[in-house]
């Protein structure tokens, strides 16, 4: 972590749902241009932590900083403007809106000129040619894989400095997962920082530089992805 500036830093964060504690004392950090993954089993608290970062869930203790700015003082809808964008779990595309409307809404936080938006739209459609074929279709009629492409494309339209991807492979066929991860690698290559939340640890560890492992609401392991792939505990728990 030396020499590169920290983009996102989460320190000692708790997330509660009523009496239930979903995340306890979680800390993680992502540097500028880095790809980091947060892996863990279903129900480990990964999404709760991500949603706390994005201000969709209130969090108790600790601090969340993005480019040094404390996010806890902000509302969820103020974050995309800062360059921190989440691609939510389960796609959550706007089903009644067309593909193009969904993509344009992704750029809602920007005050960009029309030409600039058109260029970015073209870049997204270039990355996911399937979306270009379906541009005027209602997003609800797309297949799961296409919806995931749309969700990622919509996130890219915000021109994020950092993208939080929550379970981008969930419920998709292996062939489609390859397409999605190919696109994610391309996004990372352009210098966008990524925090990828995954149950599918293999994929994420292959792409990421560093990884954090979450179990029952706490982060139990962290380190370079390459060393975690070989870690006995990770192998036993997630890679089989």
């Amino acid at each position: 972590m030396t020499g590169v500036s920290t983009l996102l830093s989460v320190h000692d964060v708790d997330v509660h749902y009523g009496q239930i504690c979903a995340v306890r004392g979680a800390s993680l950090d992502v540097a500028e241009g880095e790809v980091v993954t947060l892996i863990g089993a279903n129900g480990a608290g990964k999404s709760s932590l991500i949603n706390a970062i994005c201000r969709l869930r209130p969090c108790g203790e600790g601090h969340i900083r993005f480019r040094g700015q404390d996010l806890r003082a902000l509302r969820a809808d103020e974050l995309p403007g800062l360059g921190l964008v989440q691609v939510p779990e389960g796609r959550r595309v706007f089903g009644r809106l067309t593909v193009m409307e969904n993509l344009r809404l992704g750029a809602f936080c920007r005050k960009a000129a029309r030409d600039e938006l058109e260029t970015d739209l073209a870049a997204v459609l270039d990355l996911f040619p399937r979306l270009a074929e379906r541009r005027d279709q209602a997003a609800g009629t797309l297949s799961g894989g296409e919806q995931q492409m749309l969700a990622i494309g919509r996130g890219l339209m915000a021109k994020p400095a950092m993208l939080l991807l929550d379970e981008p492979s969930m419920g998709l066929a292996p062939r489609i997962i390859d397409v999605i991860y190919g696109a994610i690698a391309a996004i990372a290559a352009k210098g966008v920082s990524l925090l990828i939340v995954e149950q599918n640890a293999f994929l994420a560890l292959e792409l990421a530089r560093r990884a954090f492992v979450m179990e029952a609401g706490t982060i139990t392991l962290s380190g370079p992805a390459a060393s975690l792939v070989d870690d006995e505990r990770v192998r036993a728990a997630y890679l089989g």
């Binding site: 994005c54 969709l56 509302r75 969820a76 809808d77 103020e78 974050l79 995309p80 403007g81 964008v85 989440q86 939510p88 959550r92 706007f94 089903g95 009644r96 809106l97 409307e101 809404l105 992704g106 809602f108 936080c109 919509r154 915000a158």
Partner: peptide, 16 residues
Amino acid sequence: RAVAEDRETAALMGIN
């Protein structure tokens, strides 16, 4: 229309 459909995701797009 986005807020009518899914208020939380609309917030993730920066919609107040």
